[in-house]
Design a protein around this nucleic acid. Structure first.
Length: 280
RNA sequence: UUCCUUGCAA
């Protein structure tokens, strides 16, 4: 089973879900073992880009085949519901799970907390963080990152900083995602000074700057018209051997076009193609 | 062997 699960997972990661389901059907028809991992892997692939109806049909098949859904199954489903604006349904499942005596783990809470934060319901999300503490479910860096992102999106950077202090007090180490959230709050305002400070903070804490960090910097600079500076950041990125994506180029193109520099924008566009960056 | 968090645009 492990061999086949690994293969099926590999196919799913490469967006070849058709192939994965094909292999799954072949295995089942030959009477080979499948387990809850197999189903969870496929369910997750369906949830990533499938219709909710297909998802539910698959869960029914899973149960009909005698496979008992586990925590991961619920988590995958809840994540899908949260993304499909069915957050309250996800909350109901959460309460049902606990009513059944299901052990709610950090990931379960993280999914709902993130869902709430994405809807701007950060207060409620913080309520769940309190609930985690009460129930001795450990809050993780991911938990805090979701909350921090929620505050940052609403420009409540002070609140975000408070949460970072809280993390540190619990012995959790802010990571590049944490800092990228803060950075993006400043970049949306085009606050170049604070962007600098944040990057400095990252490097001094041994956090690597990733493609998202650079993309965020480029975006922030372009928002205030500093496309030349943005281009130097892009070059830094390239010189470090990082692979830029459309999110690194788009703000620059947008900025140039806004300043009626379409010719220059086209030059950058061609560069994009040369570097095999797929436009979107 | 499976689930959760961050950037542009939409």
């Amino acid at each position: 089973v492990v061999t086949y699960n690994t293969l099926i997972h590999g196919m799913c990661k490469e967006k070849k879900a058709e192939e994965a389901f094909g292999l799954f059907k072949e295995l089942s028809s030959k009477g080979y073992d499948t387990d809850v991992y197999t189903y969870n892997i496929l369910l997750d692939a369906l949830c990533k880009d499938g219709k909710l109806n297909d998802v539910m049909t698959f869960v029914e098949k899973m149960i009909a085949s005698g496979c008992v859904p586990d925590n991961v199954t619920y988590n995958v489903l809840m994540e899908r519901l949260c993304r499909g604006r069915r957050l309250d349904r996800a909350m109901r499942i959460l309460r049902e799970m606990e009513a059944k005596g299901c052990y709610l783990n950090s990931v379960t809470y993280n999914i709902v907390i993130n869902g709430l934060c994405k809807q701007g319901r950060v207060e409620e999300a913080e309520g769940l963080l309190g609930e985690m503490d009460d129930r001795r479910v450990v809050a993780t860096v991911v938990t805090y990152n979701s909350l921090i992102h929620g505050h940052c999106r609403a420009q409540r950077i002070g609140k975000a900083m408070q949460l970072i202090d809280e993390m540190l007090a619990k012995g959790l180490v802010p990571d590049k995602v944490t800092y990228n959230c803060i950075l993006s709050a400043y970049s949306k305002k085009g606050n170049v000074g604070k962007m600098r400070d944040t990057v400095q903070m990252m490097t001094s804490h041994g956090c690597e700057l990733d493609a998202i960090t650079y993309g965020t910097l480029i975006d922030g600079l372009c928002r205030t018209g500093k496309y030349e500076f943005a281009i130097t950041i892009l070059q830094t990125m390239l010189s470090k051997g990082m692979v830029p994506d459309a999110a690194a180029y788009n703000p620059i193109l947008q900025c140039l076009c806004r300043q009626y520099k379409v010719q220059e924008a086209l030059v950058k566009y061609r560069e994009m193609l040369e570097k095999c960056v797929a436009p979107n």
